[in-house]
Structures are given as C-alpha cells and as structure tokens.
Design a protein around this nucleic acid. Structure first.
Length: 509
RNA sequence: GGUCCCUUCGUCUAGGGGUUAGGACGCAAGAUUUUCAUUCUUGAAACAGGGGUUCGAUUCCCCUAGGGACUACCA
C-alpha cells in the first residue's frame, strides 16, 4: 500500500488569482502532508493556453509563501518527478494517449465545432439532452464510424481532430471518496470526454491529471467538490491504463459558499459585501484591482485558522490553532460533507484573536507605518503603550489609529450630544480651576493626576461622573477611549492644558 | 432538463438510537468600567417535511422538498 509514502499535490491553473477556496484546498493538502510526514507538491496545470493569465503563477507562489505553506516539490523547487508544469510535459501525454488509442479506450473524432453546435441545437429543440456518448458516438465523424484507411488519411492530411475517451456501455462505476464514502455512477450517464484537444495539441485536464498523478506517485487527491462529477471518468482512466491498483485515494472538499444568497463564493461577493476573496491583492491585466487578505490587514495565521475551520473541525471545542497544531490534528475523515457559507464577521473575529495574542512590540512596526502616513512619529515605548491600551478594541492593526488618534492630535470638534449632556452650568468654571491645578503638578503620573482631580471635584462639590465625562470631552472630543488619566499622562502637560484652553474657547457660554 | 453530492440555532459546527441537543461568531439583557470598548454572567436561537425500522429516532432506511456542483476541444 502506498500509505507509507504520502504524496499530495495542489494543482492550480494559472488563469488568475488564487481564490480562498483554492487556498483552503492548498492548506488541506499541506496539512495532510505534514500530518503524515508526506510531500506537498505544487503542479501548475496550464493546459489551457487560451485562459493563461500572465503573473498568475507568481501570484500563486506568493500566496502560498505568505500563508507559510511550504512546497516540497514544484516548478521552482524542482524534485525527482519533474517537470511540474504541464505545458512542459506534452510529449508524456502524447505517449500515454497513444496507449489508450492502441488499447481501444480512445478514438479520433473529426467533428467540427459547428457540427457539434448544430447537434446540440437540434437536441435542445427536441428537449432532449445532448451528449457525445455511447448512444450518439456512432452518428458522428470519428475513427469508430470511418474505416481505418479514411481515418489515417484524414490524420495525415492534417484534418483537425480530437481524441476522445471511449466510455464503456452501461455498467456501474463505483468510486470511493474519503469524505463521502462510496459514489456510484452508471457509465451511460457519462460522455466521451475529449482527452486531447485539436486547438493547441495539448491534453485536457482529465488526461494530464491522471497521467501526472500516476507518474508523480500521488497517494491522495484532495480537491474541491466541483470535481466529483468527473471522478468516475478518472477512475475509468486509471482502469484503462491498468493503474487501478496504485490509484490515489480521493477526497472531495465541500465548497465555500457565499455569505448570503445562493451559490459558491465568487469575486463579486467580496466586492459587494466588503471582504476579500483572494489571499493577496490582485490587479488584473486589465487593471482591475481586487482586495486581498494580506492588504486588508489579516494575519496569515488567522487566514489559515479560519480557512481550516471552514469545512473541518477536530471535534473538540478548540477554535484557535497555529499551523503546527492544525497539521497535528488534521484528518480527512473529519472533513465535512456539506458546503460552508463564508462568514466575514467571524473572519474578523479570528483576526482579532491573533491581534490580541500578539505582543505590543510585534505590532509596533506596523503601527509606525500608519502613523507615518498621518504625519506623526513617536518612540517605540510610547507606541507600545498605546497599542496595549487599544488593541483589544480593534480587529486589525490599521484600525488602531481610529482608536488612538487623540494621543497625537487634539480633537477638531466636540460631540454635540456629549456637550449637551455634560457641559452644564459650572463646568466652564471648573475647567479653569482644573487647568490651574494641572499646571502646578510636578508629578505627571496618571495616579497622581487622578487623585488631584478627584480631590478637586469633591472640593468644588461637583458631580463626579459629569466632570469626568466633560474632561474626556475636552481631551478626545467625545465619549470614548481608554482610561482618561492614562491619555492625559501620555499626551503630557502642555498638550493637556492646550486642549482645555481650546475647549473653553469654544464651549464656554 | 440530466447526473451526482448535501441538509443540526441566522452563520460555522459538536453530537449521535434514550442528551436539559453542546461550543463559537453574531444578536439581546445584566454586571464591571468616570465614557466607549474590553471582560464576565445570562438569554433568545436548530435536528427541513413525510413515511418506515425500533420499546424508543434528531441519529438508521426510503420518499418529498430545498440547496449545491457538474453538464466545453476550462480547469
């Protein structure tokens, strides 16, 4: 049994950015490999030259690197089973499709697109289902209906042809899937899939995939559920090649569905509902920009964590895992069968968890960048203090500014509701007293400041809550923010007195 | 339309022939806090429907309904 030698592959097509569904597939493959001391292989499936998008491969690599999913064998890494890019394996596929032809498992078909379209239209008009299959193949122009000489003549004269798989008639193919159990199909419902295209002389996914998985000694195929319908074809291909005894095991992952409404998660949903569907920001060759998790401020650990739990769980109540814990606990048997709706809210919550778990000095560098954009600088010491004060209130590093700007600049306006509620008779007078008390303080610690302020409130027979809120209004412009005296301590005496003066000018009546 | 897959709180899920059906996100209330947030406590919230099998079904089987994927010389 190939069990002792776990080899899995992630096999994306370079047709654009990697979708988070793809990222999750990569993650599960990686996790499964790590768990079993196996190899994680990256194979680029670029057999559709028409859909190739420049830069996709780099994007895929950068995404996996960002997520920390290390590749053991691949296009860049090399390895004993290369090349790992299908466009470089043309000769191999050609050689193998010939085996199928020789054994009668495949045949040449000369039908043009126009002829096929016409046939489809005809069936549709009669409300019948069209398929190029066991029931119709004899009505088309192919090596089954032409005699050998005519077939050869056409091939030699350069007539375009495809090679189709000759699906056997009426029997049950059963395939087993690790997450779904046994799946059965009748071959009559399957069509004669094109194995080799005429347009570019390249194999289709089905052929290339089976040949490569076999040659690369892949032990487990872990891929999205959208591939489940082609599983019987793939099983039949393994049989046709005589590779059934070493056929990999299959695991079809549930789809990631859009947060609301119907269907699987798409690029549009992210744009509409304000969350990324791509790991990294992506700019299409047409210049269209799509947001990425990285650029939106997500930590890669958080993305791995949330993706891991979208379709899998360990059966315990643990929700926070690092990559290593994930790898230790992961199993294909505990992957869910049903599609999982993506929850942007919970995604943010995951990031929040990772943010608060980080030490302040891990965040400070990032915060400095935001600060620089705003035109401020400060020492790491002060910044770390501020981060510690506000990080529990935010989900992303870039939101720290929204909760801490008043450490750097005075309020530009005062919340009217709070003014109405707190700036009562006597408050202006109190503030003037307060200001002079503050200016006399040698000890500018939050503790001392608090003590002196409390004493003044008592002395002046003022309402404690009211005054405290009024001071807060003066300092930050509203009713929010962390401990008031810590803010005052941090911004310093000069700034505090300035803010009181400014507030008095505007609010004094 | 056809084929296949799926179905536990709004969402992610645990569970599994006899349970007060558990957790998390979100939501609500209360407590703490000089504010807001955090935190803590509490609450509302689910086995799609119908038939079987069984002493007993949310759990097993069947049907229906709903959802999803696929149905290209795309992957």
């Amino acid at each position: 049994m190939a069990n002792s030698n776990i080899r899995v592959r992630f096999a994306p097509s370079p047709t654009g950015p990697l979708h988070i569904g793809g990222a999750r597939t990569a993650l599960y493959n990686y996790l499964f490999a790590k768990k079993n001391n196996g190899k994680f292989i990256l194979r680029i499936e670029d057999t559709d030259s028409t859909r190739f998008v420049d830069g996709s491969e780099e994007y895929i690599y950068e995404s996996l690197r960002w997520l920390g999913l290390n590749i053991d064998e691949g296009v860049l890494e090399g390895g004993p089973f290369g090349p790992y890019k299908q466009s470089q394996r043309k000769d191999i596929y050609f050689q193998y499709v010939n085996i199928l032809l020789e054994r009668g498992w495949a045949y040449y078909a000369f039908d043009t697109n126009e002829e096929l379209d016409a046939a489809r239209a005809l069936y549709e008009a009669e409300k019948r289902n069209f398929a190029y299959d066991t029931s119709t193949r004899l009505s088309f122009v192919n090596s089954l209906t032409l005699d050998e000489k005519e077939t050869q003549k056409r091939i030699n004269s350069g007539t375009p042809y495809v090679i189709r798989f000759k699906m056997p008639e009426n029997f049950e193919v059963t395939a087993s899937d690790i997450v779904r159990g046994t799946v059965t199909f009748n071959t009559n419902t399957l069509d004669d899939k094109v194995l080799f295209k005429s347009a570019d002389g390249l194999p289709t996914y089905h052929l290339a995939n089976i040949v490569d998985d076999h040659l690369m000694e892949i032990s487990h195929v872990i891929r999205g559920e959208e591939w489940l319908p082609s599983l019987p074809l793939h099983v039949m291909l393994y049989r046709a090649f005589g590779w059934e005894s070493t056929m990999p095991q299959f695991a079809h992952l549930p789809l990631i569905l859009k947060p609301s409404g119907k269907g699987k998660l798409s690029k549009r949903d992210g744009d509409r509902e304000g969350f990324p569907v791509f790991p990294l920001q992506y700019t299409s060759p047409q210049g269209e920009v799509s947001s990425g998790y990285r650029e939106s401020g997500y930590f890669p650990e958080a993305v791995n964590n949330l993706l891991a739990l979208l379709g899998w769980n360990p059966g315990t109540e643990q929700e926070l895992f690092n990559l290593e814990e994930l790898a230790n606990q992961f199993s294909l048997e505990r992957v869910n069968k049903s599609g999982a709706r993506f929850d942007p809210e919970k995604a943010r919550w995951f990031n929040h968890q990772y943010l608060i778990a980080k030490s302040n000095d891990e965040i400070v560098l990032d915060f400095k960048k935001t600060l620089k954009e705003k035109g401020y600088t400060s020492t790491s010491e002060i910044l770390e203090k501020i981060i510690g004060l506000v990080k529990e209130r935010v989900n992303f590093t870039h939101e720290i500014w929204d909760q801490s700007w008043f450490f750097f600049e005075a309020p530009k306006s005062y919340d009217n509701y709070v003014v109405q509620k707190r700036w009562k008779d006597g408050v202006s007078g109190f503030m003037e007293e307060f200001s002079s008390v503050l200016s006399n303080q040698q000890d500018w610690s939050a503790a001392n400041l608090k003590e002196k302020t409390s004493a003044l409130i008592t002395e002046k027979n003022q309402n404690f809550g009211n005054i405290m809120n009024a001071i807060r209004l003066v300092i930050v412009g509203g009713s929010f923010g962390p401990d008031l005296f810590t803010i005052i301590e941090t911004i310093g005496k000069n700034e505090t007195l300035k803010r009181i003066k400014a507030a008095l000018e505007i609010l004094k009546n």
